[in-house]
Design a protein around this nucleic acid. Structure first.
Lengths: 111, 111
DNA sequence: TTATTTAATCGTATATTTGCGATATAAGAT
DNA sequence: ATCTTATATCGCAAATATACGATTAAATAA
């Protein structure tokens, strides 16, 4: 991949792709589920639940944070992660937009 | 990554992640849009529209096909690609399920 | 039959992702 | 002040993804 071609697409396509990439790993989906299930902010618990090393979980959390899907604040010696519902809702809408946008144009498949 | 850890998660998480990966590139989102816009099955047209080489587009199409989002049939010397609406609808529902599932549990963010 | 057109595949280079152990950091406990 | 605990980050290895040119394959046109 000599050059990056991603910039040649629309911002909307890039944003949507980036969000999709954020949840394109079962570990990150599992992390989101754990974060949603617990009412309090956990972190080390995720490491207990997932079959991954602490450093790996930390890395996945960082990616979710970079994608804006998760917020993180320092709480004493531990970290507090939460789902960013606002961003999540926005991306949910973007997805719906894509799905509907595609579907409206052509409901029937020709092959 | 000495070992694959993806199998250690639920099938549902894996399937969803795989679908997300399929649309985790702006080129593939753009391809889906083109396929939806045209009423007929094109292929070479995608190459004209996208800023990518023919072999690269072919590769992206293959990935979409592997993910089940697109069907492809041979039509003489050319290929005919179409969106698989059924599979698309299924994944749309899976996404909604995830979003709602997460949201119901905890609407408020604690940080 | 030979040439042309269209698309898939191969080979290759490079970039990114995934994963882990080891180390660093920072707060709380002793 | 030192030890413990929790987490982030670094460095590395291996796997995957991205992109392209060249080649192959297969059907139509000449």
């Amino acid at each position: 991949m000599a050059v990056h071609k991603k910039e040649e697409f629309t911002q909307r396509e890039q944003d949507l792709a980036e969000f999709a990439k954020a949840i394109a790993h079962p570990a990150r989906i599992a992390i989101l589920k754990v974060l949603a299930q617990k009412n309090e902010c956990i972190c080390g618990e995720i490491v207990q639940i997932l079959p991954l090393a602490q450093s790996t979980v930390s890395q996945h959390l960082k990616e979710l944070k970079n994608a804006g899907l998760v917020t993180g604040t320092v709480d004493g010696p531990r970290s507090c992660y939460c789902i960013n519902w606002k961003a999540f809702e926005k991306f949910n809408q973007e997805f719906s937009w894509l799905f509907n946008n595609l579907k409206i144009k052509n409901e029937k498949s020709c092959c």
